[in-house]
C-alpha cells in the first residue's frame, strides 16, 4: 500500500512541484501516473522512493512513514521497492546477469540462490541467451528489460517505473508494458509514470493524472 496525505514539495529554488496531493494505491494494483512533462510525476515516484523529502504532509509505504525514516533506514525501504529508471541506471562494467544479481547481493543472498533467481528472471525478461553480454552490446529495449529484471529479482512488493518506455520504439514499448503487466499478475504493485496516452487507454488500468503539481484524476477502475 502506498498512501499520500496532503503531500507538498517545494524545491530549494522555490519551485513548487506538488500541492497537497492525496491518494492511496492498494497492494497488487497497476496504476498509471500520467501528465505532461513537469507535471510532478517523477517527483511523486522520487518521494515514494525517498530520493526526495516532502516539504509537507506524510507518505506511507505499508506501515512505514517514508518522510520520517532516518538515513540509515532508507536502504531497507528501497529493498521493498524496485525502481525502473527512464535512463536505465545500469552498471556498464557488468554483464546482464551481474546487473540483475546486484540486487540479490545487496540482500546478502547465497550464491546458489542468486544464480537460480537470476536464471529465472532472465527467462522472464527473455534475455537468457544474452546473460553474459555487457550493456554496450544490447539494444535500448534489452537494457530496459535488464533494468526491469534488476527491479523485480529482489521480490520487491512495489515496482516504480519512471517512463520506462520513453526512449523506446512503439513495439518494444508494448513488450515492456506487457512484461510489467505479467509482473503485476504475480501480485506486485506497479506504479508507472508515462505520457503515452494510447498505452494507458489500451491497458485499462487505474490512472492518476497530475497537472501543475496537483492531482486532477484518481480514477479507480473495477473490472
Amino acid at each position: 500500500m502506498v498512501r499520500f496525505e496532503n503531500v507538498s514539495k517545494t524545491f530549494p529554488n522555490r519551485k513548487q512541484a506538488l500541492y497537497s496531493v492525496n491518494f492511496t494505491i492498494d497492494d497488487g494494483e497497476f496504476v498509471f501516473l500520467v501528465g505532461p512533462s513537469g507535471a510532478g510525476k517523477t517527483t511523486i515516484l522520487r518521494l515514494i522512493f525517498r530520493e526526495l523529502i516532502p516539504t509537507g504532509g506524510s507518505i506511507f509505504v505499508d506501515a512505514l512513514e517514508v518522510n520520517k525514516l532516518k538515513s540509515k533506514e532508507v536502504p531497507y525501504l528501497r529493498r521493498k521497492i524496485g525502481y525502473i529508471f527512464q535512463d536505465f541506471k545500469i552498471l556498464h562494467s557488468r554483464t546482464v546477469a551481474e546487473n540483475i544479481a546486484v540486487t540479490l547481493e545487496i540482500l546478502d543472498k547465497k550464491k546458489e540462490e542468486i544464480d537460480e533467481k537470476v536464471k529465472d528472471i532472465l527467462k522472464i525478461i527473455n534475455l537468457e541467451d544474452k546473460k553474459d553480454y555487457f550493456p554496450v552490446q544490447l539494444s535500448l529495449g534489452e537494457i530496459q528489460r535488464v533494468a526491469i529484471g534488476r527491479a523485480v529479482v529482489g521480490d520487491a512488493d512495489i515496482i516504480l517505473a519512471d517512463e520506462p518506455t520513453g526512449n523506446l520504439d512503439p513495439k518494444t514499448s508494448w513488450d515492456i508494458v506487457k512484461l510489467l503487466g505479467n509482473i503485476n499478475k504475480t501480485g506486485k504493485t506497479i506504479i508507472m509514470a508515462t505520457h503515452n496516452i494510447d498505452m494507458v487507454s489500451s491497458m485499462k488500468k487505474r490512472v492518476l493524472a497530475v497537472s501543475g503539481g496537483k492531482l486532477v484524476k484518481t480514477e479507480k477502475i473495477v473490472y
Partner: peptide
C-alpha cells in the same frame, strides 16, 4: 556512478 546506482537499489552504507 556505480555507488549512486547501488544506493538506489538499496545498498547500505557499510555494503
Amino acid at each position: 556512478e556505480e555507488i549512486d546506482i547501488l544506493t538506489l537499489v538499496g545498498a547500505t552504507e557499510s555494503y
